[in-house]
Design a protein around this nucleic acid. Sequence first.
DNA 1: GCATGATTCAAACGGGCGTTTGAATCGTGC
DNA 2: GCACGATTCAAACGCCCGTTTGAATCATGC
Lengths: 237, 237
Amino acid sequence: MRAQRPARRTPATDALSLDTKSRILDAAELLFMEHGFEATSLRQLTAAAGVNLAAVNYHFGSKEELFQAVLTRRLDPMNQERIDLLARYEREAGSKPLTCEKILSAMLIPALRLSRDEKRGGKHFLRVLGRAYADPAPFIRNFLSAQYAGMIARFKEAFLKALPHLTKQELTWRLHFVMGALSYTLAGTDSLKLMLQVITNDQDNDELLLQRLAPFLAAGLKAPLGDAKKLELVSGD
Amino acid sequence: MRAQRPARRTPATDALSLDTKSRILDAAELLFMEHGFEATSLRQLTAAAGVNLAAVNYHFGSKEELFQAVLTRRLDPMNQERIDLLARYEREAGSKPLTCEKILSAMLIPALRLSRDEKRGGKHFLRVLGRAYADPAPFIRNFLSAQYAGMIARFKEAFLKALPHLTKQELTWRLHFVMGALSYTLAGTDSLKLMLQVITNDQDNDELLLQRLAPFLAAGLKAPLGDAKKLELVSGD
DNA sequence: GCATGATTCAAACGGGCGTTTGAATCGTGC
DNA sequence: GCACGATTCAAACGCCCGTTTGAATCATGC
């Protein structure tokens, strides 16, 4: 029933006359960001893409598979870029262990590059991704853990060398916090900016943002092990 | 059309025979956590609560207003508890400024208390909340910024005193990161635990978690101001 | 220039959605 | 013990959903 892609291409003179598949992916990226997965209907999506309603099921199979395609289109290259950058840093450092900041850079820079690249969906995609992290739908959760498993394992190994005072378990938690702050920050809904009264007119916004995030995360990662007595559920007064 | 609450109460001998309103709120909290707002239908919700389909519209007006009621029921007391705890700490400290860790405790402890209180919805609510942070629906975003404005302003003021080396703007960003790591962590979907291969059998899970989160966040908040040259978008090799 | 398979299209399918309605029931104050 | 407002209930309303269908159109290889 599904087709192999034929060799046909529209002459690339008009940037708007892309593949049907690409037009669907672009419209989906935008609308999933604006309204979320559940609240975006295939009717408004195909209308925005200028394609027939049935095209999504024809090219992607289902709405869920379309969502996974939206994610994988950007996420696979970004995570590969992270791994490659980390490998390059390690090569350049020779036998010396990388600093925590350097490893963090290998995580943040590809995300920042993507966010600034309007031709690759820019910020739209990162918002969709940040929202997907919090989505309880099983097909999303399974997809994301599969997508991230390799990259996370690779970076955990690198951080372990850079932070020898941490146990494996402690590092796992701290990486969890890092991912939290990162996804929350990159997904950055406007309401939260409003909530914190951040002024965000600037276009180089994200660059400034990551320059602030990196020292924060590096300090957190390097923190000494906690006393396990700092937080007490004191009830009486 | 809407009614004032009458004095009627079922005899509290049976914990399951609550108000219709409370039963709806409890079922909504659970289902919104499991499936999200959009993916939860009023039919399954009212069936789970054991009430008539029309009861949601009768008691709350609409599905959206029900969602706000679910949030406000827990969030208002929790944020008030945070403010009160901070005030108590300040009183106890006299004229000395609070430490960063102490202020953080005032933020984290009420959340931890709530998360461990099964009678107040326990973890369910915090997941709903974490997910709401990432939701693009305007009615949710406006509601959340209104709910948080007072609490955040109060804590920002306290942190400013504890961290005199930070500018107001820098602190705003760091609080943004703190909220990100906190909400992501408390919302903690299982997929992310899976992704990071965290073993989470323990029931006192959340307590351990916050004991790890607090030193991480404190270190991040106390970090020296960044160089603004650490992150470079180097492209060539 | 026709056969073939890929793609597009309009239309319809069955079903679930949030909300409304108006009558039945309940609980209380008089 | 009755009147009245609060609450519950079954049923229906109108609408939009994701998906499927089968015919029309297109692009290509022979």
